[in-house]
């Protein structure tokens, strides 16, 4: 089975808005999901430079789905959905 790819933006905006803290919280999930997810940091997606969208940072991508104002709960919810093919 292909792994669900979790990408955390490490651009300036996402970093300042707590992206690294979100990443470290998500990293604790590798225990639970073992080889089902793959976590990586990526450079700016470019989402944040549109008008007010900085306020919805940090952004996380789970496969092709973008999560705004990302926190642990939101990311887990999407990972679960992807794993169950919903």
């Amino acid at each position: 089975m292909e792994k669900v790819k979790v990408k955390i933006c490490e651009g300036t905006t996402c970093f300042v808005m707590g992206g690294q803290a979100v990443k470290s919280m998500i990293s604790t999930l590798t225990e639970k999901y073992k080889d089902k997810i793959e976590i990586s940091s990526v450079r700016c997606f470019g989402t944040c430079n549109k008008s007010d969208s900085f306020s919805k940072a940090p952004y996380v991508m789970v496969d092709d789905e973008q999560i705004s104002s990302a926190d642990l709960e939101k990311v887990i919810a999407v990972i679960e959905r992807k794993l169950n093919n919903e």
């Binding site: 707590g18 919280m25 900085f54 306020s55 104002s69 926190d71 709960e73």
Partner: peptide, 17 residues
């Protein structure tokens, strides 16, 4: 930074921005 701290810090930072 835990989840709740994240929320308050983000709010404060948004105001500053």
């Amino acid at each position: 930074m835990n989840n709740s701290e994240l929320e308050t810090k983000r709010l404060k930072r948004e105001v500053l921005i």
